[in-house]
Write a protein that binds this DNA or RNA. Structure first.
Lengths: 240, 240
DNA sequence: TCAAAAGTGTTTATCTTACACCCATGG
DNA sequence: CCATGGGTGTAAGATAAACACTTTTGA
């Protein structure tokens, strides 16, 4: 076999956000700002991503993509899966776009997919350039990015059972109702509010703060915060 | 930035086996069969792996490595994690070995790690060429392979909680005691035998067969088998 | 005073844990 | 007949699930 054995390596990020009503995923529209004749048809939406630079750690590349796009650092970020099929670039439009965008001759890209959780209200720097797509309804996307998003949703649904990931999606202060709604959306089922409150009342790292809702036409809700230090301490104790 | 952006991509497999007493991981000794002056010092042990061929799916490369090494197909195989630090090849011995083994000039390799579960008694084809290392005691290995093994153990311990992976490690017919021992080793804790039997008695996919132990100096144990079809049917029903 | 969401307890069923003895076999 | 591991049940505590009314606020 004549070997070249050097595919390009990229990272792609499935970035989740929660706006209070639904779970969203961040997509980039390749056509924004282009004249119609230059636009890519028909699947112009893609995940944010980048080639991995020479001498750059793969995980670091994912952090860089997040930073460049949202301006945020210290974001919850996990490797999801490698998508390494040789026919990932089989759609001609995608391949053309990639060659133009990178100004390189590219035959193959192996991508490392990540998923990230952000506090949506904080990520405003990227406003205008991006689309927050509802996860209930993911359209066809560029490359195999729709598969990647679905894989990300599956991973999130699994992990949320064992890790307090929801607090990465909620604002710093939040109500029990917001917390419950988020769990309901991610898990795709409803909870009894009393039983929900009972179960979370055992979470010592969930702490009421000295503040309530204002200007609401009903009994104002107590705000809570996630005490990350307490969580890490309790977790450590548990493993001893 | 002057970009080359084309690291080599490899796969490495953490292959677990269970011999009835302990959990083992398969390692390759690079020095076997070499004269002393040609040997790599001092960490000659490595994980089985390969470069990903041009036009070869990354997952397929992992399947190929398993097939070439053990002769086995249809092995339980999962992506574990990508190890993509640029200084993975920082040990000079490792880099030298790699250049010789591949006959290529290589600066960087991004590897996709997998973990696999095999029925140890079946994997005899690879006898002699490999070492089955006890997972209680993983020595320093080539590259970052020790980190990869530890990551594999962590993933196995987590997954075994939610998926019936143990049956991939046990022979086709096995006793409840073997099953319990395997869980105890993987999870690193002891179970009460009565409570263990009670909990697994609910597993409809665990079926007694018409055979018992022979030639044992005590009451012979009942053999059981894992009914994969039943498991998949029950799992499907559960999600509806 | 009404509408709207917040917050609160009890009962029942299920699951988990702790614990001790008889059974079948080979030597 | 003895040594060895196989196999069995019960009671107490913890957890999960079902279910309805009062409270506080703004309009």
């Amino acid at each position: 076999m004549a070997v070249k054995l050097n595919p390009h390596v990229s990272v792609d990020c499935v970035i989740f956000g929660f706006d209070g009503q639904s779970l969203k995923v961040l997509l980039i529209d390749r056509n924004l700002g282009l004249t119609p004749e230059k636009q890519t048809a028909p699947n112009s939406l893609k995940l944010p991503g980048s080639m991995v630079y020479d001498d750059e750690d793969v995980d670091t590349a994912a952090v860089r993509v997040l930073k460049e796009l949202t301006g945020l650092e210290n974001i919850y970020l996990q490797q999801l899966k490698v998508f390494g099929s040789p026919d990932r670039l089989s759609k001609k439009d995608d391949l053309d776009w990639l060659q133009k965008a990178t100004r390189m001759t590219i035959n193959r890209v192996v991508t490392v997919a990540y998923y990230a959780l952000i506090k949506l209200h904080k990520a405003m720097p990227c406003e205008g350039k991006v689309i927050w797509q509802d996860t209930q309804n993911i359209p066809e996307l560029a490359f195999d990015h729709r598969d990647i998003v679905i894989e990300g949703l599956t991973a999130l649904r699994k992990e949320v059972q064992y890790e307090p990931l929801v607090f990465e999606l909620l604002p710093k202060k939040f109500t029990i109702r917001q917390l419950q709604t988020l769990y309901e959306i991610i898990e795709g089922r409803k909870f009894d509010n009393r039983n929900f409150r009972k179960s979370i009342s055992r979470w010592q790292y969930l702490q009421p703060i000295d503040e309530k809702e204002k200007n609401v036409a009903h009994k104002p809700a107590q705000f809570y915060r996630f005490d990350k230090r307490a969580y890490q301490r309790l977790k450590k104790e548990f493993f001893e």
